[in-house]
Simulated assay, not measured.
Amino acid sequence: MHWLKSVCIASCLLGIAHTSWAGVVVGGTRVVYDGSKKEASISVMNPEKTTPYLIQSWVEDASAGGAQKAPFIMTPPLFRLDAGQENVLRIIRTGGTFVENKESVFWVNIKSIPASEKSDANQLQISVKTRIKLFYRPASLSGSASDAYKSLKFSRSGNQLQVNNPTPYHVSFYRVSVGKDEISNAGMVAPQSSLTWTIPAGASGAASWQAINDFGGISADASAPL
């Protein structure tokens, strides 16, 4: 009986795992809005065989914690995505005043709600919200976004590590390390700004880092003595 109980528990856990992996797939980890263009876009796909989803999308102002309305609309803002289908969400600027010498960042939100079947039985519906960064990139910026991580300046003061970003681009970190010790949740450094972390106890050596590019790929290693 003990082995049967173990098999049942494992089966239930496997079913939960499959459910958590199912759902709508967003075609990117970030969106770059080229200031010289009229719009940007990102795809959403429903890989399910039978289940349709209701898709809702909107943009939030990252600097205000979502409290202010962002100067963008997403279209279509609400639609049904049938099983096996794909659609493209368009992001259109509606106004707003942006600084023209560096990027601005916003949040793209995409919520997927599975359809429910007609039944008298109780049903559990779980909606999933995907949140990715939207970078508004003015057309006049100099340099290359893909090379911005190479220009970062690192310095150490006691147990604090600081990075200064002199470029007009956001740099999202995949990894930041001091010697062999990695900084947890390195995050992102804004353009023409700095960011400070606490160094793991006992860490020593040079700083090394990798960044995430516009396409979600990982950059080559870069390093600098401290």
Score class of each variant (00 low, 15 high):
92 I>C: 11
137 R>M: 14
2 H>Y: 13
121 A>G: 06
124 L>F: 11
86 E>A: 15
184 S>M: 12
153 K>T: 02
194 S>M: 11
52 P>G: 07
192 Q>P: 00
111 K>Y: 01
60 E>F: 08
163 V>Y: 00
89 L>T: 08
25 V>L: 10
140 S>F: 13
23 G>S: 05
59 V>S: 07
113 I>E: 05
163 V>P: 02
215 F>D: 07
155 S>R: 04
148 A>I: 02
1 M>N: 13
85 Q>C: 11
130 T>V: 13
118 K>C: 12
219 S>F: 01
170 H>K: 04
199 I>W: 03
33 Y>D: 01
108 V>T: 09
221 D>C: 04
206 A>V: 04
189 V>C: 02
215 F>K: 10
98 F>I: 11
10 A>C: 08
112 S>A: 12
220 A>S: 09
141 L>P: 08
130 T>D: 10
16 I>G: 08
25 V>T: 13
81 L>M: 05
221 D>W: 14
77 P>F: 12
75 T>C: 10
112 S>C: 06
105 V>H: 01
155 S>M: 03
211 A>V: 00
70 A>F: 03
7 V>K: 14
200 P>G: 06
15 G>K: 02
144 S>R: 13
180 K>V: 09
83 A>V: 08
122 N>R: 09
28 G>C: 11
21 W>P: 00
50 T>I: 13
77 P>N: 14
7 V>S: 12
165 N>I: 03
203 A>D: 02
211 A>I: 00
219 S>H: 03
34 D>L: 08
132 I>E: 03
174 Y>V: 01
71 P>D: 05
67 A>W: 09
122 N>C: 05
103 E>D: 09
149 Y>A: 06
181 D>W: 00
85 Q>L: 09
142 S>R: 09
200 P>C: 02
94 T>P: 08
80 R>P: 05
85 Q>A: 13
160 Q>G: 00
156 R>A: 01
172 S>W: 08
88 V>M: 15
99 V>A: 14
91 I>W: 08
116 S>P: 00
61 D>F: 06
41 S>N: 09
226 L>N: 14
64 A>T: 15
51 T>Q: 11
196 T>V: 14
81 L>H: 04
29 T>I: 14
39 E>T: 10
173 F>W: 10
42 I>S: 04
60 E>L: 10
18 H>W: 13
68 Q>E: 13
150 K>D: 00
3 W>H: 15
62 A>C: 09
166 P>W: 03
28 G>W: 07
120 D>S: 07
139 A>Y: 05
46 N>G: 02
140 S>R: 15
177 S>K: 06
44 V>R: 07
129 K>V: 10
33 Y>L: 02
3 W>T: 15
45 M>S: 15
128 V>A: 06
213 N>K: 08
82 D>A: 15
157 S>I: 01
9 I>V: 09
40 A>S: 12
14 L>F: 15
10 A>I: 05
166 P>L: 02
171 V>Q: 03
132 I>M: 05
24 V>C: 14
131 R>E: 03
8 C>V: 15
60 E>S: 10
174 Y>Q: 07
205 G>A: 04
193 S>P: 11
161 L>H: 00
130 T>K: 11
138 P>E: 08
128 V>Y: 10
186 A>Q: 10
152 L>W: 01
15 G>I: 05
76 P>C: 02
37 K>Q: 14
148 A>Y: 01
147 D>Q: 13
146 S>A: 14
221 D>Y: 12
115 A>D: 04
166 P>M: 01
94 T>L: 11
134 L>F: 11
146 S>Y: 12
202 G>K: 03
126 I>E: 03
